[in-house]
Nucleic acid binder design. Structure first.
Lengths: 124, 124
DNA sequence: ACATGGTACCTTGCATCACAAAGTACCTGT
DNA sequence: ACAGGTACTTTGTGATGCAAGGTACCATGT
């Protein structure tokens, strides 16, 4: 196990949430999503994105339509289904809960390390 | 794919980070960790925790010693190695970057949905 | 001595999923 | 035709959360 791998693990699941968020804004196709994720510093490659979109579609949270492009092959433009909107809301709640839990853990560690390593004189 | 599964996915990787954090505070054994995680609303079961501790140990980030208990079988008390401290710092940086990225995504969605669905009259 | 219950740690098997790499298909310009 | 760019797909691998079941140690009551 190395740091890169651990970082990948940490991003799992978050990716799904971010992609649903991006699609919730309106019709987009895969390259749009890659651009948006990249600009938010979330690096994703095609081999990750396409299977993920297929899974989300098969779960009933996304739908898509083919749209002709004026400069290349046709594109799949994705939209959220009503079920997908419900799912996104649930994911967002989970995200906030998770971030809160992590914040709790970090905060407790900081409290304890301040107690342990303080250079200030003992109040007594 | 269902919501429970997606929530599990979202927690992957975070767990590792939280466990390292807890161990960084001082010597603890598995039940201590489970209590701490539970109180931070992060539900973990033994079947997840023990293999994870073994992996972290094999990666050189943790060390442990057996300690006799006055009320049951001996316990493995874990501590962070120096390498583990470096790794924890890297994980914490990754966490903050990731949280920032997600915040960026959420914020952009909110901006766009305000623009799209505003009931206010057009400023023009 | 023995049985019982509680605590603590470990192992097996399964399903999921990110990723790399290679492939297929469409369109435009020359 | 052919080359180059864009877009979507497929296959195989490795990692890992989890459920379920197992092993082992200890104290207590009889």
């Amino acid at each position: 196990m190395n740091i890169e791998n651990a970082q990948v693990q940490m991003r799992k699941g978050i990716l799904e949430f971010c992609i649903l968020h991006i699609i919730s804004r309106g019709e987009v196709y895969a390259s749009d999503m890659l651009d948006e994720l990249t600009s938010a510093q979330i690096m994703v490659v095609e081999g990750t994105l396409y299977p993920l979109l297929t899974r989300l579609k098969n779960s009933g949270w996304l739908d898509y339509k083919w749209v002709e492009s004026s400069s290349g092959p046709p594109r799949k433009y994705y939209v959220l289904t009503n079920e997908g909107k419900v799912f996104l809301d649930a994911m967002q709640a989970t995200w906030f809960e998770l971030a809160q839990s992590v914040q709790t853990i970090i905060h407790r560690t900081e409290e304890l390390s301040n107690t342990d390593s303080t250079i200030l004189p003992d109040p007594n």
